[in-house]
Design a protein around this nucleic acid. Structure first.
Ligand SMILES: [Mn+2]
Ligand SMILES: [Mn+2]
Ligand SMILES: [Zn+2]
Ligand SMILES: [Zn+2]
Lengths: 135, 135
DNA sequence: TTGAAATTGAAAACCGATTTCATTTGACCG
DNA sequence: CGGTCAAATGAAATCGGTTTTCAATTTCAA
């Protein structure tokens, strides 16, 4: 356990959900600018390997690291503002396990991503559309 | 509508599900080696834009292109042999729509990926483990 | 037929992820 | 306490898929 490792682990859990390597690196640099990017990356991988987080890939080119919570959750991903919202998946995972069982598939992990438009983005778009029409 | 475009569209639908750019490029080159990789890439993007396919991202570094079918489906992704198997999601999408509604979220697309180990990989691993023990 | 707009192919640029490697560090043992 | 060695680190290089650039070609509607 090195000081860098402790600092990185600590920062990861302070920063909350859906962290990117770059974000965590920036955060860690505030405390100690000598820490290397690759060290942050490696420790993030380590956090995953020991089962405290998992990678989340939304197809936007960057990998995010998400704390693994007791309750499985899915993601609502706004295509406009890129915000991620979590929702509980208790009943859904039962159905998914059932589906997997029918294929004799041993489940390790489940990812559910719903993409679309969040409330606030839709409201904003409505307002902009109206303004456009009246001008 | 150029001959390249027609060839690429045709090859995409012949090749079936979960195609990568490189795979489709190889396929197209068999017919016409003069076609460029970027043309294949651009037309794959176009196929997505017109709503005939969607990108699938499994976190393994390559983007796959999947035909959009009438019935929504999820994926079983074997972490060992990398095979993708599809399963129907009729009842599941209802639950997901419900979850989205609770957040006033306008759904555009849903992705469900279950990672784990397929039957044949597990069988093979059992056999290898046994052989290892007896030697 | 003609010209603007779209498409193409080769190559380069991009960019996050990952590896390399020389150096430092920390846990452990006597 | 040193000494030892495997693990960890940081800077830089590399990797590999994706995306852009740009000059040349093709399409298509007028
Ligand atoms: Mn999450
Ligand atoms: Mn599919
Ligand atoms: Zn939004
Ligand atoms: Zn398998």
């Amino acid at each position: 356990m090195t000081p860098q490792r402790e600092m990185i682990f600590r920062a990861f859990f302070e920063l909350g959900e859906h962290v990117t390597v770059a974000e965590l690196y920036r955060k860690v640099c505030e405390k100690n600018p000598a820490v290397g990017y690759s060290t942050v990356w490696r420790n993030l991988k380590l956090i995953c390997k020991v089962g405290l987080a998992e990678e989340v890939n939304l197809g936007d080119g960057v990998t995010r690291y998400d704390r693994i919570t007791r309750q499985p959750h899915g993601h609502l991903y706004c295509l406009q503002c890129k915000k991620l919202t979590e929702f509980e998946m208790n009943s859904i995972t039962d159905l998914l396990d059932l589906a997997a069982k029918q294929y004799d598939f041993a489940v390790e992990g489940v990812k559910v991503e719903i993409s679309g438009y969040c409330r606030s983005c839709r409201k904003m778009n409505e307002r902009l559309a109206k303004d456009g029409r009246t001008n």
